[in-house]
Write a protein that binds this DNA or RNA. Structure first.
Lengths: 248, 248
DNA sequence: TATAGACTATGACGCGACGTGAGAGTCAAT
DNA sequence: ATTGACTCTCACGTCGCGTCATAGTCTATA
């Protein structure tokens, strides 16, 4: 009848420590103890435990569960509906992060493609030398998502995008020995910002500035971008930060 | 040029405490300090901070961010793709919880409808006296979701479901003075389990047992179920626990 | 020039749900 | 009597800060 910790733990698939913890916080006190201090769980304790685990599976906090199981007048249905809202909100936040991640990945893909050695014979966005490697390592889904927008463009759009990017790169490369705060540099960065937003998804100014730092902090990007001119990556990063600060 | 904590904090929209924390954990040490110990952040520090906030927005841990920004050879793109997987996994877990919550809500709705005083003139599942109140309090979406499956049933299906539920309730009510472990009781509970799975979504045995406890721990359910016979809720809860334990 | 007010510093607890030892006692079987 | 499986009670670590508490610094005004 009365079970000890390990029996209970094995029966319901939790750890002994968890039972100790539930005892500590007053969520589930065993009905009895042996003279030597061993916890003894009754059938009633087991039933309460089942309730606890049900709500735990649903994502409730132990505090909430405690309130719920200790009061028969507590409206479980209302609690569930409120809890549901919380879960939806959590999911929304994760979706937000996923969107931002995807945006940044797309941006990186575009960047890599743009600055490859193929650039002097026109960019072919439907072929990416990094892609096979990427597919092998991370599976198709991630790569597909990252490529989705680029892949949907036709040849004409691709060429016009690559030309636009190249134009801005070249302009910035020419300006890179001046100040990143100059009117010309800031204008070019403004176009850069507009171009990214149009083609890769919209960035907050904060994120835009962070992106600039990414150019200089990752040697792969630095290397690629600097093909347009030594020190261009650093120059762009500085200009992007200034742009972000001035635009608000 | 060199900014103090509050200036930086206000500029990028974080708290002073956060800057202290980043200093503490070695994520962002300011380049300088005044003689009295005030932190002084350089432009370079600001740029690093922008990077940090970019990755923080994407949901990276501060530890990961630290690794990332401290090594130019760290592959940010790879990190992003791995991170993306983590986010997807997190979302999957939340979706799982949402499904369980919805299932349980549907079950509660059905329970409430079943055991209302209308039961002697046939159940009308398209009308629920609790529903208006529910809509007022929690908005339409939650209620709609909870009702979705029931609402889609036609009159014939509804009547057959209500009859099935009533039959099982009555059988269990007749058995309630015997043992919840008896063959007859367990058979009836088995049908109950099958019926729930068919009409409200599938439950794990664990969850099924937890559900039984819900009948007795929430006085609304106890009251409603006991309309079929005093003590029926408790009897069902016991029988469901036994059923779950024996079925694995 | 004294004081108020805005800012800065360090230190330390708290949160949530346990995991992971450490050190020590209990119990049944060999 | 020993072994091995089990039990107990501390107590620290996790993660990203929020929130005091206490104390020092700097500037502008009465």
């Amino acid at each position: 009848m009365a079970m000890r910790v390990k029996e209970v733990a094995d029966l319901v698939g939790i750890s002994v420590r968890t039972l100790h913890h539930y005892d500590d916080i007053g969520l589930l006190h065993p009905d009895g103890t042996t003279e030597s201090g061993y916890r003894l769980y009754s059938d009633g304790n087991l039933e309460t435990l089942q309730q606890i685990l049900l709500f735990r599976e649903l994502g409730f906090s132990l505090q909430r569960i405690k309130e719920i199981i200790q009061s028969p007048s507590f409206d479980r249905k209302e609690a569930l509906i409120l809890h549901r809202k919380m879960l939806l909100e959590k999911r929304r936040r994760i979706d937000q992060m996923l969107e931002n991640v995807d945006r940044t990945l797309k941006h990186m893909q575009g960047e890599m493609k743009m600055t490859n050695e193929e650039r002097f014979r026109g960019f072919d966005f439907s072929h990416n030398p990094y892609e096979k490697e990427a597919r092998d390592r991370w599976g198709d889904e991630a790569v597909d998502t990252a490529n989705a927008k680029l892949a949907k463009m036709n040849k004409t759009e691709q060429r016009s995008l690559s030309e636009a990017m190249e134009t801005i790169y070249s302009r910035l490369a020419d300006l890179r020995h001046g100040s990143p705060a100059s009117k010309e540099a800031q204008a070019a960065i403004g176009e850069w910002y507009a171009m990214l937003n149009k083609n890769f998804g919209s960035y907050s100014l904060q994120a835009f500035a962070g992106l600039g730092q990414l150019y200089v902090s990752d040697e792969r990007f630095t290397e690629n971008i600097d093909k347009f001119g030594e020190g261009l990556a650093q120059f762009m990063a500085d200009a992007m930060t200034i742009f972000a600060d001035n635009s608000k």
